[in-house]
Amino acid sequence: MLQSTEVLREKPMRIVTPTVQVRAREPSVSQEEAPPCIVASHLSAFFGDAAAVKDVSISIPQNAVTAIIGPSGCGKSTLLRCFNRMHETVPGTRVEGSVEILGSSIYGDGTSPIAVRRHVGMVFQRPTPFPTMSIRANVAAGLRVDSKSHATRGATSEIVEEALQRAGLWAEVKDQLDESAMALSGGQQQRLCIARALATRPRVILLDEPTASLDPLSTQKVEELVYDLRQTVTVVIVTHNMQQAARVSDGTAFLLMGELVEFASTRELFTAPKDPRTESYITGRFG
C-alpha cells in the first residue's frame, strides 16, 4: 500500500517513527498563525444514550488540511458529521456543546442545518453520484436548491466548469457532460462528488474517508486534489490510513474512543507525539 503511493511526492523525509513518512513541504499557513475556521467546544455526539464523541474541543485552522485519525469506531466520522449537522439526520441522535464556523454558531438557536450544509461541503466513503442525473446535472445539483438565485444557464455552466476544473476532472469529462455519471470509473465518480461539493463554493469541505473504496491510482489523484484544495478552502479529512494523513494534511487530530487525545501539526504528531497513546497508535501497537 505504502509502496504504491510513496512515489507520489518527491523527497520524503526520514522521521523517527518507522511506519509513517511525512512529506516535507512549506506550510501554507503555519498552525499558530492561521485564524481558526471551525471551533468546537465541549462537543459531544450521541447515538441514543451512547456517546460516540465525548467532550471534544478543537480549533481547526483556515485554508489548511486537517486530518482526523484513529482506530475504527473511535468516532472520527461522527465528529466530522457534527461539523455540517449531518449527525442529526440519523434518528435518535443528539449533539451537545457548540461548534462555530467562521464566527457563526452552527448549532445556534434558529440556525437552519440547510444553511450550514450549503457552506460546508461533504464527500463520503463511497462515491455518491446521483444515478438519474447527467454529469453536468450532478455538479449543478447543489446549485439548484438555492431557490432564489436560479442562476442562468450560462452562469451555471461556468460554475460547473470551474468546479470540475478544481476537482481535476474537467479534461476527462468535458465531452460527455450530458452522459450519465454512472459511466465514470469509481475514482472519477469520487472526484465528481468533490466537484459537486465545490460547486456551491463552500468555505469548508469535509471528506469522510474519501479513498476507502478506491484503487491506489485513483487514491493518488484524490490525494493530489486534496493537497491542492487547501489553497482555497478549509479541508477536514477523516482517514483510517495514517500514511494518507501524513501525505496530505497540515494538522492531524488523533481520536480514541470518542476523545480527542492529541491535535498538533502533522509533522509534530507523527515525529514527536506528546501522548503515549498517540505514539502507540502511530507506531502500530493497536488499531
Binding site: 440547510i114 450544509r117 450549503r118 463511497r126 446521483f130 444515478p131
Partner: peptide
C-alpha cells in the same frame, strides 16, 4: 436506494422533502 445517496443530497443542503422526492424517489 442506498442511504449514501440520501446523505449526499442532505449534505448538499437539500431539504428533507426535496431529498426524498428529487433524489430518492427519482432514483
Amino acid at each position: 436506494v442506498p442511504t449514501s445517496l440520501r446523505e449526499a443530497a442532505l449534505a448538499l443542503g437539500y431539504p428533507r422533502w426535496r431529498t426524498s422526492i428529487s433524489v430518492v424517489l427519482r432514483t
